[in-house]
């Protein structure tokens, strides 16, 4: 069945390890030097105000940008040393906020795009006309509950359905670490809750590690093991989800110079 590609990497290394990682764009420091370790199978929520560096942190883990200092390791392997493409895709997959699917392609093709790293060129070309690995795709679609939409074009789907398809795509990709950047920001509360529940459930079933930035504290508390609060590119707190206190959240989201007197 669907299992993460854990055989690739040393077994007791952390799933994600950031060691003294910082990121500067020109003169602006987006991420101050920070260190963070995520154990295999852990579900970590990143919270914090806009501009705190959540997206940058996720992009660093995904290998989409290189750190200015420090190093990022996935299962003990330095991300900078991995070739982009198949090698990286086996270790890390990502779900974005929206507009992530190819609108003119069917849902089935969009899900199978998660296999592009594994397929040869000929197989990819053939799959445009006669999709390969269909059973895998249908299993993933069934898991996220949208099998009936398999032959619809992605453009015709609602926001919630699109995110389910994006999750199915990561399911067939089978990375050891799944990243999600505000995966439910464009959904209403009820649908957001369903999608986050699905995301945490399926990654847990596959034994994958999940790191997600999320703006809803309630969802972070309910579905994640651990909450990391980021502010101005620094880790302000890093605690088990059950032990988070209102005071910590007030400090995290406080607007500078506007501190309310309690």
């Amino acid at each position: 069945m669907l299992r993460a590609n854990s055989a690739l990497s040393s077994s007791n290394a952390p799933a994600v390890l950031l060691d003294g990682v910082s990121k500067r764009y020109d003169e602006a420091t987006v991420l101050a030097p920070l260190s963070l370790a995520v154990e295999p199978g852990e579900r970590v929520a990143l919270i914090g105000p806009s501009g705190a560096g959540k997206t940058t942190l996720l992009r660093l883990i995904a290998g989409a940008v290189a750190p200015s200092t420090g190093c990022v390791e996935l299962r003990g392997r330095n991300v900078a040393s991995l070739r982009p493409g198949r090698e990286l895709a086996r270790l890390v997959g990502m779900i974005a906020q929206q507009f992530d699917l190819v609108p003119n392609l069917s849902v089935l093709h969009n899900v199978l795009a998660g296999r592009l790293g594994e397929w040869s060129f000929g197989r990819s070309l053939l799959s445009l006309v006669w999709p390969r690995d269909q059973r895998l795709a249908f299993e993933a679609l069934e898991r996220v509950g949208v099998t009936h939409l398999a032959h619809q074009r992605a453009a015709r789907l609602s926001g919630g359905e699109q995110q389910r398809v994006a999750i199915a795509r990561v399911l067939v990709q089978r990375p050891t670490v799944v990243l999600a950047d505000e995966p439910v920001a464009s959904l209403d509360r009820a649908r957001a809750r369903e999608v986050v529940r699905l995301l945490t459930d399926v990654t847990e079933e596959q034994g994958e590690t999940l790191v997600a930035s999320i703006h809803s504290i309630d969802l972070a508390r309910e579905f994640f093991d651990r909450i990391v609060g980021l502010r101005n590119g620094l880790v302000q707190f890093d605690v088990p989800a059950f032990s988070i206190r209102d005071r910590m959240l007030e400090d995290l989201y406080e607007i500078e110079g506007l501190r309310s007197e309690v």
Binding site: P84, G85, D100, V102, A113, L116, G117, A166, R169
Partner: peptide, 8 residues
């Protein structure tokens, strides 16, 4: 998104 899933 396709590049992130390993596509050349």
């Amino acid at each position: 998104a396709l590049r992130r899933s390993g596509a050349s």
